[in-house]
Amino acid sequence: MITAYHRPDTLEAALQLLTRSRKMAVLAGKTITDAGLDDSIDEVVDLQAIGLRQIHEHGTQHTLEALVTLQTWRDHAATPAALRDVIHAEDSFTFRNMRTIASLLYVPDAESQLVAALLVCDAVVQVTASTGTQSLPLARFLAQRVALLSTSIPTAVTIEVSGTIAFANVARTPADKPIVAAVARKTVLGEIRLALSGVAPMPILIAPNDVENVKPAGDFRGSSAYRRQMAITLSRRVLDALG
């Protein structure tokens, strides 16, 4: 049960609180469902007062500060149309208002099409600890997420928006979470980035030739074999769409 609520004014103060107790959770958006609250948590640090709500454009690189809401990102004039569609599909309007870039990182979803999109946009996560700031590719962040988040706070994600993005998915209904999704980006140099969701514990970057080798876990919406077949089909579609 939560017995203490903290709203620090600065990132430094937030980091101090975070490292003070292992029973501390971070509220990086408006919803507590993204904070990983469980019986072991008894304090929360709410980041709402520390700022981090800007989107910065540096040519084709966009830096999304951690507390930018999904809806703000979607509505941002420079967000590419395909990415805007993926953001839109990620959540209902209400939750897009409440969830932030950091929300995606605190409780990443195996079936998040948006996290897959971040992967193909070469997302780099900036994480700040009391010892300093480091930047690491999203895939590496996801692999080390638990350890990183125990002592540091993600402050921004930088993505590359040049090139062309295509996505395809299969879901029970148009707005349902995809069972499997494929997102691909063709860079201005003609390189292909392909990411899949729904085939591994986290969305993954994958080489097109490796798609046949995925070994997803199944659930009631899609067996392992089905998810694998969909990974192949949807990858082909997005790659075909990119030409």
Binding site: I2, Y5, R7, L27, K30, T31, I32, T33, V44, D46, Q48, F93, T94, F95, N97, M98
Partner: peptide
Amino acid sequence: AALLLDGVLANADVMLAAQ
């Protein structure tokens, strides 16, 4: 449980009152 928080739609059942 939706309401307007600073004019923006938000769900009050997944927010702490302190927030």
